[in-house]
Design a protein around this nucleic acid. Structure first.
Lengths: 206, 206
DNA sequence: ATTTTTAGACCGTCAGTCGGTTTTTGATCA
DNA sequence: TGATCAAAAACCGACTGACGGTCTAAAAAT
């Protein structure tokens, strides 16, 4: 890896952490370069704008997640398990995400929105293939597969991304997901574990 | 109405138009006060921050829509018609919305997100009552009414807000909505007209 | 020698502040 | 009733500090 690329990567990594910790708007270019021990010019040598840094950060996150998801999609396991694995791949690493991002999430419009859009674009085709596999096996039965996958992803992000949801939310969502794909009741109970995994800690004990 | 209130209202109206035309971030306080013919200090006499102006703009939009929706919810028409009317109430006026807002919508994260959140909070209880009425009449059959209403609203905004969707999207959404509320197929075909009404004009003729 | 990379002073813009001025209000008294 | 006046409300605009982004020139790498 060339020296320049290392620098750029370092800047992206620092920006990534700051954006999650304090939010995109609240992180100044000056903070990033100070932590990198680099001058303004260096930053703007590598990136045309601050916004471009956000794109690069999102690219980095997505790339990682997509490759994990692809592996999951290729593994020879039952379809519902595979769905869970693919969806589960599309989450930032735990230690960085849940603590840091959750705090500032409400104001992190840009990151959240852009990330979601990219995630959707990448995840829909992958998951659609899994659903079609399920249809061939008689587990699912529906038309408009891609559209339905997209809808369930939109729904899950809108419902669960902020980690604030009830048991009723989960129950209704699972029911809707099963009916959406024409699955038998209980087929998609695995969703409960997935969303529970991203649930926000409310700070209380036990 | 007192003098101060008139000023404040004027500022809100100007901000409203600018925010829709150019987006929240791209509208500077200086532009607003210049158009209002008012000094910086006057602006900050009425609002603690620029963000507060956005809240006020959203309040103004919401208040209007909620009162229209309440009327619709109280009218003695068949349940599906009533649902369409209530949902239809939650849309900014045509002439201002579709042309202006659509252009800059992509970058209007804040306005869009905050508006949606408020809309959701106001619309869910109203629509839930209509759905319960439908359940009593045997048109719908489901539990977790509020949760399901919330989900359908999240879904519709995620899918249709940008005015970019296909016939397949509409078909799948209608199917999902019917199954979500346990309605007979065809019951919710009225949705097609609702979303078509908000469809973005692509500029081509005929 | 030439290209790549770095430095950091500098620029325009923007949200927000501050001390002071004008206008409105409403209570008091001739 | 109408004049007076002090307090409160509304308004003004120069100023500040922070920010994203630019630029020129030097240092480092090739």
């Amino acid at each position: 890896m060339k020296k320049g690329e290392r620098r750029k990567d370092e800047l992206i990594r620092i920006a990534y952490r700051k954006f999650l910790e304090k939010g995109y708007e609240q992180t100044s270019v000056d903070e990033i370069i100070e932590e990198a021990g680099v001058a303004k010019g260096t930053f703007y040598y590598h990136f045309p704008s601050k916004e471009a840094t956000l794109e690069a950060v999102i690219d980095m996150m997505i790339t990682e997640e997509v490759s994990r998801a692809r592996e999951a999609a290729a593994s020879p396991v039952p379809v519902p398990v595979k769905m869970a694995a693919v969806i589960g791949s599309f989450r930032p690493e735990r230690e960085e995400q849940s603590i840091a991002m959750a705090v500032q999430d409400r104001e992190n419009f840009r990151l959240h929105e852009k990330l979601n859009k990219r995630l959707l674009a990448e995840a829909v085709p992958l998951l659609s293939d899994v659903v079609r596999e399920g249809i061939r096996q008689g587990i699912f039965a529906c038309e408009q597969v891609e559209e339905r996958v997209k809808m369930m992803l939109i729904l899950s992000s809108g419902l669960f991304d902020d980690g604030d949801f009830t048991e009723n939310d989960a129950a209704a969502f699972i029911d809707i997901a099963e009916k959406t794909f024409g699955a038998k009741p209980g087929t998609m109970a695995f969703i409960r574990e997935l969303i529970a995994g991203g649930k926000k800690d409310d700070g209380r004990e036990s």
